[in-house]
Design a protein around this nucleic acid. Structure first.
Lengths: 131, 131
DNA sequence: CTTGACCTTCCCACGATTGGAAGCCTGAGG
DNA sequence: CCTCAGGCTTCCAATCGTGGGAAGGTCAAG
């Protein structure tokens, strides 16, 4: 299984697979005589793990920690949960921030005629000193 | 008013003020004999406008468009509203994505004992093929 | 053997921000 | 008047995760 097939099987692009190897997230793949990387089931599973982690919004650092815990059959689930909970808290913070932005803008947009005239509460708000 | 005072007055760091000038977001500041940038009320207002736009999550491109509309006293408010609405839609999309991540993780974390034992539904989910 | 589709490494770009180094300038106190 | 801290200048680099592309080697089907 070369890098292209691994990419197709995991949803991780070949570029990214090489990058993950470069930063030490996954072990360097073994090579064929022609210097092609080759992947087996174990590596495919790790790449899928990474992909799923990215889809859940984990940073590379967090994924690296999760991978380490996954590889360790004696891990305490406490540690996994801690990482997940911290990430959820982080997501919630960012969601709240974006929600506040969206709410503010929705209100301003609602008050904006949106026609050919220049008067615009959106610009008026942006021009105001940050309250 | 030099760049440090402008930074303090607007909440935009001196680094960023220089950067905004470099990319053409704001006009190059006039200079003193000693080659120091100097800022007056007009520029301070523009920097505040940018700051407020950033706080509302607009990209630099969007802010550049909003700034242009702000400077144009004959702008149709329709255009401002369109930019704002597009941004709100974008925020809503990203909020929904992050909400889905958070919900998934909350569920998994809730099912995880979080003690000294290795069994962990969070890792189990990450290891599964992306459904 | 040719051809096209792959692989390899290497460098560059994005967006927005921060950091640092080296060198000049300003302003306040001694 | 001199000095010293701190602010200004420019330039270069790093962040994070991803994608693009060039130049060259390799594989497989026709």
């Amino acid at each position: 299984m070369n890098i292209g097939q691994a990419a197709k099987a995991t949803g991780v692009s070949a570029k990214m697979i090489r990058y993950y190897e470069e930063i030490g997230l996954v072990r360097p793949a073994s090579r064929t005589d022609a210097n092609y990387r080759e992947y087996d089931g174990r590596e495919i599973n790790e790449l899928r793990f990474i992909k799923r982690g990215r889809n859940l919004g984990f940073s590379m650092v967090e994924i690296s920690q999760l991978l380490a815990l996954w590889r360790d059959r004696d891990r305490p689930s406490r540690e996994v949960k801690a990482i997940a909970d911290r990430h959820v808290a982080d997501l919630d913070t960012r969601i709240a921030e974006m929600q506040a932005m969206a709410d503010t803008l929705r209100h301003l947009s609602h008050c904006c005629a949106g026609d050919g005239r220049p008067d615009c509460p959106i610009l008026a708000d942006l021009a105001e000193p940050p309250h």
